[in-house]
Simulated assay, not measured.
Amino acid sequence: MTTLNDRTSLLAEAIALRTADRTEEARTRLLSLSERFPADAEIAYQTAWAHDRLGLEAEAVPFYESALAGTLTPADRKGALLGLGSTYRILGRYEDAVRTLRTGAAEFPEDGALRTFLSMALFNTGEAHEGMRLLLRLLAETSDDASVRQYRAAIEYYAKDLTATE
Rank of each mutant, 00 (worst) to 15 (best):
M1F: 14
T2H: 11
T2E: 12
T3F: 10
L4Y: 09
N5I: 15
D6Y: 10
R7L: 10
T8D: 14
T8G: 03
S9R: 14
L10R: 05
L10K: 04
L10C: 02
L11S: 10
A12E: 15
A14K: 06
I15K: 10
A16F: 13
A20Q: 15
T23A: 05
T23V: 11
E24W: 07
A26T: 14
T28V: 09
T28F: 04
L30F: 04
L33Q: 06
E35F: 02
R36Q: 06
A39Q: 12
E42G: 03
A44N: 09
Y45A: 02
Q46V: 06
Q46A: 08
T47L: 03
T47Q: 01
T47F: 01
H51P: 11
H51T: 08
R53E: 15
L54D: 13
G55C: 01
L56V: 08
E57Y: 14
A58V: 15
E59H: 09
A60D: 03
A60T: 04
A60F: 02
V61R: 00
Y64C: 04
S66C: 12
L68P: 15
G70T: 03
T71Y: 01
L72A: 00
T73I: 07
A75G: 13
R77N: 12
R77C: 01
K78F: 01
G79S: 11
A80E: 12
L81C: 03
G83I: 09
L84N: 04
G85R: 02
G85I: 09
G85T: 07
S86A: 09
S86I: 07
Y88H: 12
R89L: 06
R89C: 02
L91K: 07
L91R: 10
G92I: 13
R93V: 01
R93C: 02
D96Y: 00
D96R: 04
V98F: 04
R99P: 00
T100Q: 03
L101N: 09
T103D: 00
A105E: 11
E107W: 05
F108N: 11
P109W: 02
D111W: 06
A113D: 15
L114S: 06
R115H: 09
S119W: 13
S119E: 08
S119Y: 11
M120N: 04
A121G: 05
T125R: 05
A128T: 15
A128P: 15
G131F: 05
M132W: 10
R133L: 00
R133Q: 14
L134W: 02
L135V: 12
L136C: 05
L138G: 09
L139W: 14
A140I: 13
E141W: 02
E141F: 12
T142Q: 08
T142Y: 03
S143G: 10
D145F: 09
S147D: 14
V148K: 02
V148A: 00
V148I: 08
Q150I: 05
Q150R: 13
R152P: 14
A153H: 09
A154T: 13
I155C: 01
I155F: 03
I155L: 05
E156N: 11
E156W: 11
Y157S: 08
Y157G: 03
A159L: 05
A159K: 10
T165R: 01
T165W: 03
E166S: 05
